[in-house]
Simulated assay, not measured.
Amino acid sequence: MKSITRIAAALALTFGLTLSAIAAQAASISGEVKKIDESAGKVTLKHGPAKSLGMDEPMTMVYRVKDPAMLKQVKVGDKVTFEAEEAASGYTVTKIEKAK
């Protein structure tokens, strides 16, 4: 009986981690850096659909960045994946990294 409980717990944990990974992928948006404005803490990104933000069409947008240090990780022309959230002041990039 203990082994069945352990197996069930292991399966539940695995299932939960898999769902978390799927959710993280759904939140990631693929794009390209078009412009960086370090003084304003903004980046212009050309990207595909951003389902996590309710955007079904590709577009180019200016985003604020949560941490201006993120702008040092990328340069114009880089292919990136990023995550963003909608706030009262507009859309804000919370995470950005060069695409692999």
Rank of each mutant, 00 (worst) to 15 (best):
K66I: 05
E97G: 13
V65F: 12
A27H: 00
D67M: 10
R64Q: 06
S39D: 15
G16A: 13
K100V: 03
Y63V: 02
A21F: 02
A50Y: 09
T81E: 09
A84N: 14
E57H: 07
D56H: 11
K98I: 11
I4M: 09
T94K: 11
V74C: 08
K51S: 11
A21D: 00
T18A: 11
T60G: 05
D67E: 13
S52K: 01
K100E: 09
G77L: 09
V76D: 00
T94S: 13
Q73C: 07
A99G: 12
K2N: 12
S3E: 09
A21V: 01
K100N: 07
D78H: 14
Y63P: 09
S39M: 11
I36E: 02
L53P: 13
K75F: 01
A26I: 06
S39K: 12
I96M: 12
S3H: 08
K75Q: 10
K35S: 12
A23Y: 06
D78K: 08
L45K: 07
V80G: 11
K100W: 04
P58Y: 07
V76H: 03
K42L: 01
I29M: 03
I36M: 03
K75W: 01
R64F: 04
V33W: 08
G48R: 06
E57F: 07
I22V: 11
V33K: 10
L17S: 15
T81H: 10
R6F: 03
Q73F: 07
T5H: 12
P49N: 05
R64T: 04
K51I: 02
S28Y: 02
G48F: 04
E83Q: 15
G41W: 12
A88D: 15
T44R: 04
S20Y: 14
K46A: 15
D78S: 13
A23T: 10
S3R: 02
H47V: 04
L45G: 07
A9E: 08
S89M: 03
L19M: 13
G90R: 09
M1V: 03
M59F: 04
G16V: 09
T44N: 01
E86W: 04
A12D: 04
D56V: 07
L45E: 05
M59R: 06
E38I: 09
S89F: 04
A9F: 06
D67A: 14
A99I: 00
A99V: 04
A10Y: 04
L45R: 01
